[in-house]
Design a protein around this nucleic acid. Structure first.
Lengths: 236, 236
DNA sequence: TCGGCTTGTCACAGAATTGTCATCGAACTG
DNA sequence: CAGTTCGATGACAATTCTGTGACAAGCCGA
């Protein structure tokens, strides 16, 4: 496996140096940023595999960056470990609710940090998105956010795209409306569960553009939710 | 969405009670075990969604259980949070390396624990292994909530599915109607016991789709209740 | 600021599921 | 064998769940 790239976001030079040392010993590649804006740029430029994010940063709290990362589609799944000197657990909770994947309070043992990073990377292994998802004649172009069915482009809203994206990454599996809201809309947004139904309908409608049979890709699992099932599709 | 089931493994009664309270407030269903063996049994019987595992346990260290869980295919992806009074970080590291998904040291704030649990469940949502239960030609696809018998899909309602799910996880054992109501319908719902009969009938009917003999998978235990007994099935 | 697109919610109609009953037959008791 | 108890079954009405069209509010680029 190639070395994982770590983005360290902290304004204290001494901490960054300590981390760099620890990370390099453990075979991680290390990229650093001292403030929010630099951090954001590095995320897009360097495409790290994991982010270590300090709570206190010049130019805005680290949690703002976290919120931003978790909001955008491209960075939503990027693992983030928050670092902080504050021990008040409300911070921890807030961080975790916004979407931090782990939380460590300073001072911490470098070995523990490394262990947590490895645990986190192990969990998220094998998830990164290729640039295209294909199921039969249905192609999801992730980067350009386009959907092509039988060589013809399908029109659909952003939410429908995200929904289809999620479904195509997890086929043949039933999801509850709550799970879909979590996965597609993101956590801590309050939306009615029935809203999912409506978007399912919109997605089905979009899929029907070529052939009504394609609507059956999205199946209703009564009492549970919905399922994307290419297996059942009999295309002509 | 149905409540997530949490298995709490700790030998201290006071801790278990504290956790039970905290968990139920946060809408988790709570199952408890005081030692390794009970814990292991509960993992297979109750199929929790997440495990809170104390480090120190009678009958063997919690890490043994962790190792065992992470070794077996069926439980490999079950999220585990280790709890411990020991602060020595080597424990943390050892725990994380064996495969714990998170680690919290006592004393901890219940809110933080809950937040970590939610973060963990969010990460692992929709990823647990494509588990299925097989009994001869009868396959229960748990993730997709489908039932396949002799390669043909069976149609049945949600309750029948849950019932069959429970039966297939606990074969060759007789359950009273009250027990079935508890396990399948969930506690604190008041339903007539006779209702179970009706659903048993519906399930049998569904199983007959291919061959009448399959109805005998569900046996009546007069005076007691019902039993799922693949052992007695003579398929042609 | 003005349209066009998206979104989240509702209300209503149509389906599917569920819990109960009444009845019938089988099994058990003595 | 008659009397009881217990389970199977079909029917049914209430309840729950989904599909769908409509709509107002929000967002964004022009």
């Amino acid at each position: 496996m190639t070395a994982k790239k770590v983005l360290v976001v902290d304004d204290e030079l001494s901490i960054r140096e300590m981390l760099r040392l620890a990370l390099e010993i453990s075979d991680f590649e290390c990229v650093e940023a001292a403030d929010i804006h630099e951090a954001y740029r590095r995320v897009t430029d360097d495409q790290p595999d994991i982010v270590l994010l300090d709570w206190m940063l010049p130019g805005g709290s680290g949690i703002e960056l976290l919120r931003r990362l978790k909001k955008e589609e491209a960075t939503k799944t990027l693992p983030v470990i928050m670092l902080t000197a504050k021990t008040h657990e409300d911070n921890v909770i807030q961080g975790l609710e916004v979407g931090a994947d782990d939380y460590i309070t300073k001072p911490f043992a470098p070995k523990e940090l490394i262990a947590r990073m490895k645990a986190l990377l192990r969990r998220t292994a094998g998830e990164k998105s290729g640039s295209e998802l294909k199921v039969g004649d249905l192609v999801l172009e992730i980067d350009s956010r386009r959907v092509v069915l039988e060589d013809k482009r399908l029109e659909m809203g952003p939410t429908e795209f995200n929904l289809l994206h999620f479904f195509m990454s997890h086929p043949e599996r039933a999801y509850s409306r709550a799970q879909l809201l979590d996965q597609v809309w993101g956590t801590n947004v309050y939306v009615e569960e029935r809203t999912v139904d409506v978007h399912i309908r919109r997605l089905r409608k979009a899929l029907q553009a070529r052939n009504a049979a394609y609507a059956e890709l999205i199946q209703t699992v009564r009492g549970t939710g919905y399922r994307f099932s290419p297996r059942d599709l009999v295309v002509l």
